[in-house]
Structures are given as C-alpha cells and as structure tokens.
Write a protein that binds this DNA or RNA. Structure first.
Lengths: 248, 248
DNA sequence: CGTTTCAATATGTATATACATAATCGCTAT
DNA sequence: ATAGCGATTATGTATATACATATTGAAACG
C-alpha cells in the first residue's frame, strides 16, 4: 500500500516533485487501487513519504481537488470522490483547418449580407433583451468542389460595431471575430435535422437528408456577440470529443 | 491603468487575496482592457500593488497560465494570449435523469443480450487488438410512452467479467458500469444519421428520418471497457455544451 | 442523559527566503 | 561587424514557518 519506495524518489525523471506526487495519486485513483471513498494519506504522511515540505504536498492535493478527483475535508482528511458526472472536452476547430486536415482545398463564399434592426427571432437567438442593429450573414464553406457546411450567422452590432464596415467577401466571419473580440463564454447546441428545400439546395444534397447542426452563442463580458449555426451534411461530419478526467 | 487603488484592497468581500488577484486579472483580459499580447505587470509589481508576497502572486499567475489565459516567459514577463482554440465542456447526463428533467416518466427495456467472441467489427468499435469474449446489449429508453433513445452497447468481458452474470433486465448498463468500473478516458463521436428500417422500427419513427448519434468509447487504465451508441430521434434531443474559458 | 465547551487535528492561506533556470542585454575580444 | 561571454532579470520550484478555520471527539457540566 505504499505510494513509492523512499529510494525510488530520486530515481525518476526530471519531473518536479509536485508533478510526481500529482501523477502518483492520480494513477492510484484511476487504476482503481484507491476506490471512491478511500481516504488519501494525510498531508503530513505524504510529506514524510516524499520527504518534502507540506506546501508541496498541499499544492498537489489542492490541484487534485480542483480537478474534482478528490474531496478535502478539514479535520477529516482527503477522500477519493465518486466518479464525477461525465464531461467531455469538445474541440471546435476552424472550418478551414478542418477541411485542410482532410487534404482538400478550402474555399469560402459569402452568400448574403443584411444589416437590419433585430427581429424578435434575432433577439431570441442572440439573447438580447432590447432591439438594436444586427448583421445577418449567410455563407458556404467548401471542401474541394462540394459544399462542406452552411453558415448562418448573426452579429450584434451594438457589441461589435466595426463589423458594419466589413463586407465579409474575403474573410469568413469566424476568423474575423476571433482575435478582434475577446470572448468570455459560449454555449453550443448540437442536434440532427432534416434538410429543408433551401438548405438542401445550398448544400447540394437531397431535401429531407439528415444534417448535423451546431449552434454557438458567444458572449463577451456579459454582452451577446454573435450567434452562428453551422449545418453539415451528415456524411461529411463527425464531432469528436475526448475526455480525460483531470487537467494535471 | 491601475488594477485597484491601494485603499480598495481591504474593501472587498471575504475573498482570499489569491482569488482576488485571479479574478481581477481575468476580468481585465476578458473585458478586453488588456488585449492579446499585452504584458501583464511583473510579479514584483503585483506584489507591491496588492501588498502581498511574491508566492501569492505567483500562484495566481501560474493558475491563469494553466488555464491558458496568459503565457509566461522567463526574463520577459507574462503576456495575454491570443484567444485559444475553442473548447466546450459537454455534459453527458444519465438518460434517466435527462428524461425525468423533462417531467416525463422514465422506463428502460432491454431488447437483446448476446454473449459472443468479439467479431472484427466489435474489436474495431472497442479498440481491442486480440479476440475475446464480449457482451452485446440492445436496449430502449422511454420518455413516457415514446421511445427516447436506442442504446447499442458492447462490453469487453475481459475487462469487466462480472457483467457476464448480469442480465440487465432491471438496470441499464450505463448506471451499472458507473461506480463499478473506474474509467480514465472516454472518446465521443457525434453525428447525424438517417434511420434505417431496424432503427426506425425500434424508435417508432419513419425510415429515413434524421437521428442524432452519440457514440462513446471508454477506457479504464489502458483497457477498453465499453462502446456504446445512443441513437436519438432528431426532435427529441439536443446536446448542450457550455464553455467558460478558465477554471478559477 | 443530553448539552456545552474545549482542545486536538487537518486543511487553507499567506509570508519570507533560497536557489535553479531560461532568456535577454550589453560588453568585450576577435 | 560579430561571435561569444557573463551579468541581469523574471519566472519556476521548494522550504520552513505562522496563523486562521472548520470539524471532530472527548471531557466537563447541568
């Protein structure tokens, strides 16, 4: 039941002690050797075991607690938590990068650009309470000859006024916004949908064909910035999300 | 351009200094006041500004760096990073909880249960290299009277031998596995698909209707544990993922 | 017997200090 | 000029120490 033999301590790689303690304990938990509910050695025990100061041990344990692997209780000690609610990290790439990763030539085409006062629907999508100017954009992303995704976007001009002067013919709104607007929060909705006439037409697929729809709403410091809907033909797209419990 | 007035320092809530520094700087970055590339005050400046030790400042900055908001360079200082590649945290609930959250009665029904040696397809789905015993399960999750999701699952019996003795008539494989097997990693694939005859039949929808498919592969300490495919009728399901840049 | 009080304990936060390490600037010798 | 060298600087990691705080367990008390 020992974490490491004292002699092993200096035998490791050039990992910092802090990292060493972290990965040791994480390993114990993930391998199941320490089941949920198991009490982890007290800080002073780990201090002795690793022959280091309490601060170092404390930093490692605090980190494990923040990652949700363990729970710390004063006077009682630290305990392995029940397996957490599962959460996955979903990487949302730039469409250009995605297409180029497939080895296909990327092309972007702006279809429509309309400046208007926000309709009730616009406000619903953006999460705006009051009316104001918005920019509505519709664009196509191509992989080689075939349409890869249809993009329907709303930009809140009250939050990003410079967008009013941009025609978005040469640059897609996504890359344009990134780097210009620091975003603090985003919400995604992912669903399946049958293509209606308009969408089928744009994507060059049959009406009624299944599509994957990814909608993203972005805020920057409490202000709604943009709402975007990407529509992918089912065959062309799979989202991949990978999960590793802790962020060591 | 000052972070806080010296007098304000004690005027705050009962936040720890560490938390205080963290949220102050995060606010500056997210609000855009400190643009990407901006150099953050040196540790010794913050030390003076908050009237605290370098360790405290260092801990806060290290945390911001780990969260990806800033980049630290020796001898040069710390800088606000370019907006990172977007990543979303996708919560994957238990289906029972999901259904009950809709206010509908939940019911589970096991359709098929088959123990067999892994086929080539099974091995592909599970990520197994060698052949071995697997358990194939097909089940339906209901919301009220209507089918809510079809579950197609493979369990690697070499990793979870107890599953061979369970009939899964009264408990769904998901809840059964959770808590029994500590899982270390999972991979999700999310896509849209048209329902074929079999699926349409099980879910009581039209053949060709769009469905959302979520596939999950789970490992525990390097061993493949299970592969599951949830098929939802498009109308019944939307995945929601929310993102906040830092995990303060 | 139940309640209150108090001491012990483990974690939480902060300090001052020390030395290691990487990157940069400026000086010097070629 | 420039290649190399060393001093300087900011961060990285660790230590010993101190006191705060929440919680538990046991002793003291009504």
């Amino acid at each position: 039941m020992s974490l490491v033999e004292p002699d092993d301590i200096d035998g490791g790689e050039s990992l910092s002690l802090h990292q060493r303690i972290l990965s040791d304990i994480r390993e114990k938990i993930l391998s199941g050797a320490w089941a949920p509910g198991h009490r982890i050695p007290f800080e002073h025990e780990l201090t002795a075991r690793y022959n280091c100061s309490r601060m170092t041990v404390n930093k490692a344990l605090s980190q494990l607690a923040k990652a949700g692997l363990i729970e710390r209780r004063r006077r009682s000690g630290s305990f392995v938590r029940q397996p957490q609610s599962q959460a996955a990290v979903l990487e949302l790439h730039d469409i250009r990068i995605e297409v180029e990763a497939l080895g296909l030539p990327y092309r972007y085409e702006r279809l429509e650009r309309l400046k208007r006062r926000s309709s009730a629907e616009d406000r619903g999508l953006l999460g705006l309470s009051a009316s104001g100017p918005v920019l509505a954009l519709e664009s196509l992303h191509f992989a080689g000859e075939r349409p890869f995704a249809l993009e329907q976007r709303l930009i809140n001009l009250s939050a990003v006024s410079e967008a009013a002067d941009e025609d978005f013919l040469d640059i897609a709104p996504g890359p344009w916004l990134i780097g210009r607007v620091p975003w603090s929060e985003a919400e995604h909705r992912i669903r399946a949908m049958a293509a209606d006439e308009t969408i089928a037409d744009a994507l060059d697929i049959d009406a009624g064909a299944p599509c994957l729809v990814v909608e993203r709403r972005t805020w920057s410091a409490e202000h709604p910035v943009t709402h975007v809907r990407f529509i992918y033909p089912a065959e062309s797209h799979t989202l991949v999300a990978r999960f590793t419990p802790s962020q060591g």
